Simulated assay, not measured.
Amino acid sequence: MTARPAELKGLTVLNPRPVAQAASLTAALQAAGASVLELPLLAIEPLALTPEARHHVMNLDRYQGVIHVSANAAQLALQHFQDFWPQWPLAVDHVAVGRATARLLSEAGLSPLVPSREDSEGVLDLPRLHAVAGERWLLCRGDQGRELMADTLRQRGADVDVLPLYRRVLPALAGSAWQHLDRRPDVVVLTSALVWRHWQIVAGAEATRPVLVSISQRLAEQLHAAGAGEVVQADGADPSSVVHALCCWHASRHHDMQLNPPSR
Score class of each variant (00 low, 15 high):
153 L>C: 09
161 D>E: 15
68 H>D: 02
102 A>G: 12
30 Q>F: 09
24 S>G: 10
168 R>E: 03
118 E>Y: 13
191 T>R: 09
226 A>S: 14
262 P>D: 00
179 Q>I: 14
148 L>E: 06
34 A>I: 08
182 D>A: 15
75 Q>K: 07
193 A>I: 13
78 L>T: 03
83 D>S: 09
30 Q>M: 10
147 E>G: 09
92 V>D: 05
53 A>I: 08
239 P>Y: 02
51 P>Q: 13
63 Y>W: 11
96 A>I: 03
102 A>Q: 05
23 A>T: 10
257 M>R: 15
118 E>S: 07
257 M>F: 04
127 P>M: 05
40 P>G: 04
33 G>K: 09
19 V>G: 09
123 V>N: 10
118 E>T: 04
247 C>N: 06
105 L>K: 01
64 Q>P: 02
194 L>Q: 14
134 G>W: 12
43 A>K: 13
109 G>M: 04
189 V>N: 09
215 I>Y: 04
31 A>I: 07
255 H>Y: 14
141 R>T: 07
129 L>F: 09
214 S>A: 15
1 M>G: 13
59 N>R: 13
79 Q>E: 07
8 L>A: 04
94 H>N: 02
108 A>G: 07
134 G>V: 09
12 T>H: 07
248 C>G: 11
247 C>S: 10
200 Q>V: 14
164 P>S: 15
20 A>R: 15
226 A>K: 10
58 M>D: 01
177 A>P: 11
150 A>E: 14
17 R>M: 05
234 A>I: 03
52 E>P: 04
56 H>K: 06
38 E>T: 15
26 T>P: 03
87 Q>W: 00
123 V>P: 01
75 Q>V: 06
255 H>I: 13
63 Y>V: 00
163 L>H: 03
172 A>Q: 15
178 W>H: 05
12 T>E: 03
220 A>M: 08
43 A>R: 14
118 E>R: 08
118 E>D: 07
10 G>R: 08
41 L>T: 05
94 H>V: 06
84 F>N: 00
187 V>C: 08
115 P>T: 05
162 V>E: 08
251 A>C: 12
119 D>P: 03
139 L>W: 08
126 L>A: 09
3 A>E: 06
243 V>G: 02
132 V>M: 06
68 H>C: 11
6 A>C: 11
55 H>M: 05
159 D>P: 08
27 A>R: 15
143 D>I: 13
132 V>R: 00
220 A>E: 11
39 L>M: 04
118 E>L: 08
